Computed example of a mutant assay.
Amino acid sequence: MDLTSYAEWAVRLVNDPDPPPELVPLRDELAAVFDAAADEQAMALRLNALLARYPVHPQLSDHDGHGWHLHLAEDPAATAVMGLAAVVAELGADRLGRCRDPRCGLAFLDTSSNRSRRYCSARCASRANVAAFRARRRNGT
């Protein structure tokens, strides 16, 4: 069962400037998980606390002719937390990131094969590369 899509819910919530009021506390707690990703112990403590607070209730489903498969609970908070925890457990804490463009800072999951993602989107990467190019031209290098 690939839980990356569930982890993407966590990313979308962290990056949402105007989430539903009931999800604002969770957004802030998930943002703290991304901010603590460089310190794996601190990140794990935060994520474990969220897992305890938002337990997952898996269910079997056979919708749309796909046969029996697992779905996580209907609670978006629990599924986002579980997905993020699964990505960290399977791929590592270094897969959680914040955009390196100083004007951005959005959260992202690095699903690249070589763990090289530094920006939340191609747009931010391009903007940073253009800014670096212009700075080099200004400095004559």
Results as ranks from 00 to 15, higher is better:
residue 129 N to R: 12
residue 128 A to T: 15
residue 58 P to K: 05
residue 94 D to I: 15
residue 38 A to D: 09
residue 2 D to C: 08
residue 59 Q to S: 14
residue 109 L to T: 00
residue 4 T to V: 13
residue 6 Y to V: 01
residue 29 E to S: 06
residue 78 A to G: 02
residue 50 L to W: 02
residue 128 A to R: 04
residue 136 R to D: 10
residue 86 A to C: 08
residue 12 R to H: 12
residue 73 A to L: 00
residue 91 L to K: 06
residue 65 G to P: 07
residue 115 R to Q: 07
residue 97 G to M: 01
residue 45 L to F: 15
residue 139 N to E: 12
residue 45 L to V: 13
residue 31 A to K: 05
residue 41 Q to V: 15
residue 78 A to W: 06
residue 138 R to K: 10
residue 100 R to D: 08
residue 124 C to V: 05
residue 139 N to Q: 13
residue 61 S to L: 13
residue 1 M to D: 12
residue 11 V to E: 10
residue 39 D to L: 06
residue 47 L to T: 00
residue 3 L to W: 07
residue 19 P to H: 07
residue 78 A to F: 03
residue 80 A to W: 02
residue 71 H to N: 10
residue 2 D to V: 13
residue 11 V to N: 03
residue 141 T to H: 15
residue 20 P to Q: 09
residue 17 P to G: 05
residue 82 M to S: 10
residue 127 R to D: 10
residue 101 D to G: 08
residue 96 L to W: 01
residue 54 Y to T: 03
residue 61 S to C: 15
residue 74 E to F: 08
residue 112 S to F: 06
residue 90 E to K: 12
residue 12 R to V: 04
residue 125 A to V: 04
residue 97 G to A: 02
residue 92 G to H: 04
residue 31 A to L: 03
residue 76 P to F: 08
residue 70 L to H: 11
residue 5 S to K: 14
residue 45 L to D: 14
residue 138 R to A: 14
residue 2 D to I: 14
residue 63 H to D: 15
residue 67 G to P: 09
residue 2 D to L: 14
residue 69 H to K: 11
residue 8 E to R: 01
residue 125 A to P: 04
residue 105 G to W: 01
residue 42 A to I: 06
residue 5 S to P: 11
residue 94 D to G: 12
residue 107 A to T: 00
residue 42 A to C: 09
residue 6 Y to I: 06
residue 88 V to A: 09
residue 27 R to H: 00
residue 33 V to I: 03
residue 85 A to N: 11
residue 54 Y to L: 01
residue 54 Y to H: 15
residue 7 A to E: 12
residue 42 A to Y: 01
residue 20 P to V: 07
residue 31 A to W: 00
residue 105 G to V: 02
residue 34 F to S: 03
residue 70 L to Y: 08
residue 81 V to M: 01
residue 121 S to Y: 08
residue 68 W to V: 11
residue 5 S to V: 11
residue 4 T to S: 14
residue 138 R to V: 06
residue 60 L to C: 06
residue 130 V to G: 03
residue 83 G to V: 05
residue 93 A to E: 15
residue 113 S to Q: 08
residue 44 A to M: 13
residue 36 A to E: 02
residue 7 A to G: 14
residue 139 N to H: 13
residue 62 D to S: 07
residue 45 L to S: 12
residue 141 T to R: 14
residue 2 D to H: 06
residue 42 A to T: 06
residue 79 T to P: 03
residue 2 D to E: 12
residue 57 H to W: 03
residue 17 P to V: 01
residue 75 D to E: 12
residue 18 D to H: 06
residue 78 A to V: 03
residue 94 D to R: 14
residue 16 D to V: 09
residue 134 R to I: 06
residue 112 S to N: 07
residue 79 T to K: 11
residue 103 R to T: 11
residue 67 G to K: 09
residue 34 F to H: 01
residue 112 S to I: 08
residue 100 R to L: 08
residue 109 L to E: 02
residue 99 C to V: 12
residue 63 H to K: 11
residue 1 M to C: 11
residue 98 R to F: 00
residue 5 S to I: 05
